[in-house]
Design a protein around this nucleic acid. Structure first.
Length: 280
DNA sequence: AATGGTGTCAACCGCCGCGAC
DNA sequence: TGTCGCGGCGGTTGACACCAT
């Protein structure tokens, strides 16, 4: 392959994880929580580098992950967020509870990109391809044109023109080069964008609120996490997905994997609570 | 049934930012 | 202030599954 391995120490295993390795990692994290990732492989008895362990955990083993394809709503949200944030997958993923940046990135590259191209929309700029070619000399688009949002976000004099314009340019920048010019400016810009979004779209508003922590950020004290989970999902638009995830967990047989901590969580209670929250 | 092409996604790589010292 | 180590991020790769011929 000729790739320079990041974990080239002797005896460090690479490639797909085995069920045995997964089990070891899960058991370790559940027993000890997430500590120094570098120490994890040694302490957990794994011949992997810490980075690999972290990746495996965050992208695949984390119990709060959703499985399966993105729903239409999620997909639309990803598109909306990508229009604003560019290829900042982790930021996008943070707004989709139970989804990982890797998953969203993959889905973007394999599904959404093609979908948008088919619709005649440039997946990078989110502008119609036709228009894109016509305005090749322009440096910045005046207004970001994005079908779903252009309907929702009526241009308002004082609000989003500046940030939308900047967002588009930032979008373009970020897709070609991840380097940020100014993190302070950027966060201010992001805040503006998020504020403006909140003015228009309740769904986006909810998902973009910093006060509503994504499930992924719930600390890994699982019984406590279950409580936070319980609280944080009240009124969530994706309740069905959480329910199905919990169902999946049961189907999957989490105890087989050493998820004994879940014995502290009465999943049916959680489900009931979720359903009650959904009805309210 | 065999084979080649294409799509999907888990995992890796290298860079960057941040905190500790 | 500079250096180092760690975690996180985004881009990319490669193995595998699926489909068409």
């Amino acid at each position: 392959m000729g790739r320079q391995p990041c974990c080239d120490k002797l005896g460090v295993k690479k490639g797909p994880w085995t069920a045995e390795e997964d089990k070891k990692l899960i058991n370790f994290i559940l027993t000890n929580g997430q500590c120094c990732w570098r120490a994890v492989p040694k302490l957990a008895g794994l011949r992997r580098c810490g980075k690999s362990c972290r990746l495996r955990w965050t992208n695949y083993l984390r119990p709060d992950l959703k499985r399966g394809l993105l729903t239409d709503a999620e997909e639309q949200l990803v598109i909306d967020l990508h229009a604003r944030l560019g290829n900042r997958w982790s930021k996008i993923a943070a707004r989709l509870p139970g989804r990982t940046d890797n998953e969203i990135k993959n889905h973007w590259n394999t599904h959404i990109k093609k979908k948008l191209l088919k619709m005649g929309i440039d997946p990078v700029t989110h502008e119609p391809l036709q228009k894109e070619t016509n305005k090749s000399n322009e440096t910045l688009p005046d207004v970001e044109i994005f079908p779903a949002e252009s309907q929702k976000l009526e241009p308002e004099p004082n609000v989003s023109t500046a940030s939308a314009t900047t967002a588009s340019s930032e979008d373009q920048n970020s897709s070609s080069s991840p380097t940020e010019n100014s993190s302070t400016d950027e966060s201010r810009l992001l805040d503006n964008i998020l504020d403006n979004v909140s003015d228009y779209d309740p769904l986006m508003s909810y998902l973009l609120e910093d006060e509503a922590p994504p499930i992924a950020d719930v600390p890994l004290d699982f019984p406590a996490a279950a409580q936070n989970f319980d609280n944080s999902v009240q009124g969530m638009p994706f309740l069905d997905e959480y329910c199905s995830w919990l169902m999946d967990c049961q189907d999957f047989g989490i105890h087989d994997f050493g998820f004994d901590c879940f014995s502290d969580i009465d999943i049916s209670n959680v489900l009931n609570t979720l359903e009650m929250g959904n009805k309210e």
